[in-house]
Write a protein that binds this DNA or RNA. Structure first.
Length: 202
DNA sequence: TTTGCGATTCGG
DNA sequence: CGAATCGCAAAG
């Protein structure tokens, strides 16, 4: 059950399993503004808001799960709210949040956090020590090394939509969402304003 | 078993 | 624009 409290155009959101077990394209923009919490092995705790994401779905040629379940993308087929971490280009890790109902693959790539050095999916994992060992961790368990905490959702007026970055297929899908004018957003900012309705769930 | 390439980043 | 760098998954 979603738990919303509307305050001045933004929305305070409590994160539950059901929040993530929705269509990926609804979850993706809703994640902007949610707080990402990283507990390091030393015990130090890092926190920052999510400011840029991309959606990947079952019928999407760019999605790792497009051709069915494999060892790598297995967690995408499991319950929502878990971390899908993969290794890419021989040197970077990327962090995703699993979405959709159990059995249906889908994920949201976390591309940037509102914190120095976390601008870009590879950089944020490097900066905050996220790697293969975090694949499959429960992001709703506050004792996990990776945790998603409540935050303040941005309204459509504060969200910009663009095509996804770095793909060679399905490049035309406008499935990248970021906080408009946020200095921590990665890559080029070529985009168009979001149209109200598709971003706000309520 | 082999091979081509990728949801990236950085430097020239 | 190309190099770095290696695991995944499709092809053989």
């Amino acid at each position: 059950m979603l738990d919303y409290l509307v305050v001045k155009g933004t929305t305070k959101v409590k994160l539950t399993r059901d929040f993530f077990a929705r269509p990926t394209l609804e979850v993706a923009p809703d994640l902007l503004g949610m707080t990402f919490v990283r507990t390091l092995p030393s015990g130090e705790i890092l926190r920052a808001p999510i400011v840029e994401v991309e959606a990947y779905t079952q019928d999407d040629p760019a999605c790792h799960a497009f051709r069915g379940i494999t060892e790598r993308c297995r967690v995408m087929f499991g319950p929502a709210g878990f971390a899908y971490v993969y290794f890419i280009y021989g040197m970077y890790f990327c962090l995703n949040v699993v979405t959709e109902a159990d059995g249906v693959p889908g994920a949201v790539l976390i591309r940037a956090l509102g914190s120095p050095g976390c601008e870009g999916p590879g950089k944020l994992c490097r900066e905050w020590g996220i790697d293969r060992s975090h694949n499959g961790v429960d992001l709703l368990d506050c004792h996990s090394p990776l945790y998603l905490e409540h935050g303040t959702k941005y309204g459509a007026d504060f969200v910009t939509i663009s095509e996804r970055i770095g793909l060679n297929v399905a490049t035309e899908r406008p499935w990248r969402f970021f906080v408009t004018e946020n200095p921590h957003v990665s890559g080029r900012k070529k985009s168009r304003k979001s149209s109200a309705g598709s971003v706000n769930v309520k």
